[in-house]
């Protein structure tokens, strides 16, 4: 039971890292809390649903689609919203309210088009592309996407696929931040925004890119949401935002790679509570978030402390 909880916790944790990392990237670069983050996840889930129901193909194809669509959406939104915001008296407070409004708009529009019923995707559909390739190239019979064995315990295949995708995505974020020019500038803006401005870095371009990538990553995380949480509704966004915030704060705000650690810690806690104290599991994200904010506001890896 413990082994199961720990392995499941790590699998979920890697996925949770992906859930939070976009939020943290946006916060780190722009000092803006994207309260519509969870709603972007929700939209990512609907892209996966669309891919399955309209095209009838493996929902994994929704991953690149969701990323590209929301990268573009993010760039557009950035240019529409942010410059006006940053010219105001209190951009941080107003950004919270603005993105809260955006989250309401997204939820409402999705409800109008999709209704409030719970949507799910059959978990065997995820990853069919692998079995198809296997059959085509190596022969053999098309098998069912059954559970995957780890340490003698079996876990649903989508958990493993989501965790794997998350690892790849985090790796790519690392490469972006540490191996590309835009990424280096991004880190410069994250650590010292005013100095970056003073040294002539095009902060707007860096921020827009971070906003686009952040939204893209959220949408990618959303593709797996129907498999990880069973189903999604248009109202899924609000809870997802709070959970993401808990993960991000746990890892340390403003440090996207810290989110990977935060996600895993969160995932393991989540599974342990689920296993041993299931009736209190709902309380976990909230209590954890408050405790971390109060006891170690800089997060597990952070250095900056931020208090009023």
């Amino acid at each position: 039971m413990l082994t199961y909880a720990l392995v499941a916790g790590v699998l979920f944790g890697l996925y949770f890292s992906l859930v939070g990392i976009g939020l943290n990237l946006v916060f780190g670069v722009m000092r803006i809390v994207n309260l519509a983050h969870g709603d972007i996840l929700m939209l990512g889930a609907f892209i996966a649903l669309g891919v399955v129901t309209l095209a009838g193909i493996d929902p994994l194809f929704a991953v690149p689609l969701a990323f590209i669509v929301f990268l573009i959406v993010g760039l557009l939104l950035y240019w529409v919203l942010v410059p006006r915001l940053q010219g105001s008296v209190n951009p941080e407070m107003l950004s919270i309210i603005l993105f809260f409004g955006l989250s309401q708009v997204i939820e409402a529009i999705t409800t109008i088009f999709a209704g409030t019923s719970e949507r799910s995707i059959q978990s065997r559909l995820l990853g069919t592309v692998f079995t198809t390739i296997q059959v085509k190239w190596f022969g053999g019979k098309p098998g069912r996407g059954g559970p995957i064995q780890i340490f003698g315990q079996s876990f649903p295949a989508p958990w493993v696929i989501a965790a794997g995708t998350s690892l790849i995505a985090i790796g790519l974020v690392y490469l972006y931040l540490y191996r590309t020019r835009l990424g280096t500038l991004t880190r410069a803006v994250m650590s010292r925004r005013d100095e970056a401005l003073a040294t002539g870095i095009d902060v707007d371009r860096v921020s827009a890119a971070a906003f686009g990538v952040g939204l893209g990553l959220a949408a990618v995380a959303g593709v797996f949401a129907p498999f990880m949480f069973g189903s999604v509704t248009p109202a899924f966004g609000a809870d997802a935002t709070v959970t993401s915030f808990a993960i991000v704060v746990l890892g340390s705000l403003g440090n996207p790679l810290g989110t990977a650690l935060g996600g895993v810690v969160y995932g393991v806690c989540y599974m342990l509570v689920q296993t041993y104290l299931s009736s209190w599991a709902d309380l976990l994200p909230y209590v954890l978030l408050i405790l971390i904010l109060l006891l170690r506001p800089s997060g597990l890896l952070g250095r900056q402390v931020r208090v009023a």
């Binding site: 919270i96 709070v242 904010l293």
Partner: peptide, 23 residues
């Protein structure tokens, strides 16, 4: 103790607190 937090931190912590009381 939440009043030690500022801006978004306070807003989110307060939201989490209300959800914790609900649960």
């Amino acid at each position: 103790p939440l009043l030690r937090l500022s801006g978004a931190y306070f807003a989110i912590a307060n939201l989490a607190a209300s959800l914790a009381v609900l649960h």
